[in-house]
């Protein structure tokens, strides 16, 4: 299944990525080479097959509700590009 340049734009927005028109064109053709290759999967009838989402089968991995010491705001904010007054600062939310 091919992807259109318009869809590339839509997906880029979903992924919060920006591409120039040139990049978008190149990307569209590269993605299409790959997506067309993926079509070989359509040769297999997978009706009724349970999808594998984990490489091993485990269940009920649980921990007790016991508190562990937090690292604290100072360490939490140490790597932040904008860590003012104990908060993570971000440009104002206008979408």
């Amino acid at each position: 299944m091919k992807i259109t340049k318009k869809e590339v734009g839509y997906v880029a927005h979903l992924a919060r990525l920006d591409f120039s028109e040139d990049e978008k064109g190149k990307l569209t053709s590269q993605l299409n080479t790959i997506l067309v290759y993926m079509d070989i999967l359509n040769r297999i009838d997978t009706a009724g097959i349970q999808p594998v989402t984990h490489a091993i089968s485990l269940d009920n991995v649980l921990r007790d509700d016991t508190e562990k010491k937090s690292i604290g705001a100072e360490i939490a904010l140490a790597s932040a590009p904008d860590g003012n007054m104990g908060f993570f600062g971000v440009p104002r939310v206008i979408e």
Binding site: A76, D82, N84, M85, G86, F87, F88, G89, V90, P91, R92, V93
Partner: peptide
């Protein structure tokens, strides 16, 4: 997220 009308930033408490 805390939005402050007077500031160009929003602030995040996790």
């Amino acid at each position: 997220s805390i939005h402050d009308e007077s500031s160009p930033s929003s602030y995040v408490d996790l």
